[in-house]
Design a protein around this nucleic acid. Structure first.
Length: 646
RNA sequence: GCCGCCUUAGCUCAGUCGGCUAGAGCGACGCACUCGUAAUGCGUAGGUCGACGGUUCGAUUCCGUCAGGCGGCUCCA
């Protein structure tokens, strides 16, 4: 290849080739007949996958060198890296990673080549792999011709022939090998930069019923610079982490005394929360919803009727018994709203009937999954239920999706996609007939497709009572969280015996559409903090303007300015601390306050203030009236960028 | 829930190979300084070393249980 003048080293190295049908092949591959192939470079997505998969092999070899008794699981490439699962006597300790990394460096430097070898039969493979119980299981799965398309397994065994990769040293001796479909880099020398990140347990083949293996996560890149850039991105993400910013900006906390997953909002967090609530309450009214309210606990019968106790009990807090009845904290608001609908006879003229409330629900999330504001045990949903005729359902769903999109837009969130969660027909965790599910799913799918937004399918992810569309947004670390949801429910109306009187005098069952626009206030809040890295747009900022006097005796002047701002509805204060001006600026900067209004002798004499914006830009000598109008305009406009002098 | 790691002042973190009064920076408070765009100086207060048991002459340090946190896995209406 070098002879052909093509890159064999560096980030642009050609590492594998792609056949016309898209299949990737080793460079050493010798096709049976002349075939057109395209080169795949290390730094393109497929090339990086190959790099990461080969690095996973290097890791596995290192692990078996250092811990000879370790049994191999699987080791696929993942986003930004790879992992490999092992069955070992003792879980890996953090210091083991350093040892393994060193051993991997040696393997990389040794320039081992990957040699593909095809097994002639299942028995041959099984004989060679007799000491690798998990690999044997994979061979058996393949032998039974079942589930080979499962992505986790296919990395190892693939479709068609069963192959093995041997690692050969410089003298052509076999030093290690692994059952694998490939393809691989020509040599371990082509691994330019990698790092082991962490170890964790993972269930074999992803099932809780299987034994746990020890997984090591690593990352690998086409160059040292790319690795460094990746590590920088992780560090940046850490700075945006809402749990860290929540403390630094004094927004919220999770007191141990209250319990895991239960948040308290501090005054500054309370401002943002209230802005969110005020916004979404007003918007619901505009969109035709009626504001209602319901209690936090209820007798168990209600949750039997709704289907929650049979289908959702594990996620509910255990009951409390009083006066001979069991009371449950509510995990969902819908049953309550159904009772409002059912409280008197309903006419078709009332439909769509839209009920909305901030419903605080409690869910017993498993201890290992509670996570900051994004996975909590007590949360408030901006929850609504639209009761409609079956014919009205598509339009109502469209209406709700538009509502959700405009809300995300107003809060400046643009990095999201839609997910369509459907039932798993093989599972018994879903209520209702095939026809009902198909009809409901079709309605949601049509609306989602029509929206033109990116749509990802999520088979088996539906609620027990019906399919849903959800908005998935990313947090700082790239994890996606479900935010807004729209769910089609044909079960609860039947369970509750909901009905309305139609124009022809008959009694009909309405369709119920659940929707939450933020999803939960807590989770949306968390994602918002990370999206803005704590530097909230002026309209959301807990403190919008801080007055910074240059000398103490300028404070009174600023107090008058701040009073005018407050009168105009702006959240403003004067920094009366004994710090020097420079320190006050630093403090305001760290608190990410959008406007600093500085005043010294010049401003007092001229009847002006000097703005310093969050981005460091300045506008000096702005008259008081102009300054008030400026702040009011920025806040009122709800722009999500700036402010800045630029 | 499972596996691993972690828990020392409000925050970030030293430290104790089991031994008298456990340290720092930031923050808070006080005094001095009165200053034009990211840290003025000095001083003071603040900790039953997550909780409870055990081992020991002696435990913040070792062991166990629990709670809370972190990273994954599973789960996620």
């Amino acid at each position: 290849m070098a002879a052909a003048g093509l890159p064999a080293n560096g980030p642009r190295a050609i590492v594998v080739v792609r056949e016309a049908d898209g299949r990737l092949r080793d460079l050493a591959w010798a096709p049976a007949a002349d075939t057109e192939v395209t080169p795949v470079h290390l730094d393109e997505p497929d090339g990086l996958d190959v790099l990461r998969h080969s690095t996973a092999h290097v890791l596995a070899q290192a692990v078996q060198d250092v811990f000879p008794e370790a049994k191999l699981g699987i080791g696929p490439p993942i986003r930004d890296g790879f992992y490999y699962d092992f069955d070992v006597e003792k879980p890996f300790q953090p210091e083991d990673l350093g040892k393994l990394e060193k051993r991997m460096q040696d393997i990389v430097k040794a320039g081992q080549t990957f040699r593909r070898r095809e097994y002639s039969s299942l028995d041959e493979a099984k004989a060679e792999l007799k000491d690798e119980p998990f690999k044997l299981e994979l061979v058996d799965i393949k032998g039974s011709d079942d589930a080979v398309d499962e992505s986790d397994v296919s990395v190892e065994v693939g479709a068609g022939e069963l192959t093995h990769y041997d690692n050969l040293n410089k003298d052509g001796e076999r030093v290690w090998g692994d059952l694998c479909r490939g393809p691989h880099l020509p040599s371990t020398r082509l691994i330019p930069a990698f790092k082991l990140m962490r170890s964790a347990a993972a269930y074999w083949r992803g099932s809780e019923k299987n034994p746990q293996l020890q997984r090591i996560y690593g990352t690998a890149w086409q160059s040292r610079d790319e690795l460094k850039a990746y590590l920088n991105r992780l560090a940046e993400a850490e700075r945006r982490d809402h749990r860290k910013l929540g403390t630094e900006l004094d927004l919220f906390s999770f007191p141990d005394e209250i319990g895991s997953g239960l948040v308290v909002f501090h005054p500054k967090g309370g401002v943002i929360k209230r802005e969110m609530e005020d916004y979404v309450r007003a918007r619901h009214i505009e969109e035709g919803f009626q504001y209602v309210g319901s209690p936090h606990i209820t007798k168990e019968g209600l949750f039997h009727t709704s289907g929650h106790l049979p289908y959702y009990k594990d996620t509910m807090f255990p009951p409390m018994e009083l006066e001979g009845a069991n009371y449950y904290l509510k995990a969902m608001n819908c049953p309550m709203h159904n009772l409002i609908f059912r409280s008197r006879g309903r006419s078709y003229r009332e439909l769509p009937m839209r009920l909305f409330e901030f419903g605080t629900v409690y869910r017993y999330e498993k201890s290992g999954v509670v996570h900051g504001l994004t996975r909590v045990r007590g949360l408030t949903q901006d929850d609504s239920h639209s009761y409609v005729t079956a014919e009205q359902a598509p339009d109502e769903i469209k209406h709700l999706l538009n509502f959700v999109r405009s809300l995300l837009d107003d809060f400046g969130l643009d990095d999201y996609y839609l997910e369509l969660s459907t039932r798993d027909p093989k599972s018994d965790k879903f209520i209702g007939s095939d026809e009902q599910w198909e009809r409901a799913t079709k309605v949601l799918e049509d609306v989602a497709t029509e929206s033109g937004l990116e749509l990802v399918l999520d088979p088996g992810g539906a609620a027990f009572y019906g399919p849903k569309i959800s908005v998935q947004a990313k947090d700082a670390i790239g994890r996606t969280w479900q935010m807004s949801t729209i769910q089609y429910d044909f079960n609860q109306p039947a369970g509750f015996g909901l009905e309305y009187q139609a124009a022809d005098g008959t009694r009909q069952e309405p369709v119920m559409i659940h929707s939450a626009k933020f999803g939960s206030i807590e989770r949306f809040f968390g994602v918002l903090v990370e999206h803005y890295a704590g530097a909230f747009p002026a309209w959301l900022a807990p403190v919008q303007v801080v007055g910074i006097p240059i000398r103490d005796d300028h404070a009174d002047y600023l107090a008058e300015f701040v009073a005018k701002l407050k009168k105009a509805g702006i959240r403003a204060e004067v920094d009366y601390s004994t710090d020097r001006m420079q320190k006050k600026i630093r403090t305001a900067q760290q608190q990410k306050i959008p406007f600093m209004a500085i005043a010294g002798d010049d401003d007092v004499n001229g009847g002006t203030v000097s703005f310093r914006y969050r981005d460091g830009s300045q506008r000096n000598g702005v008259t008081i009236d102009e300054a008030v109008a400026h702040v009011v305009e920025v806040v009122r406009s709800r722009v999500n960028t700036g402010p800045s002098a630029a």
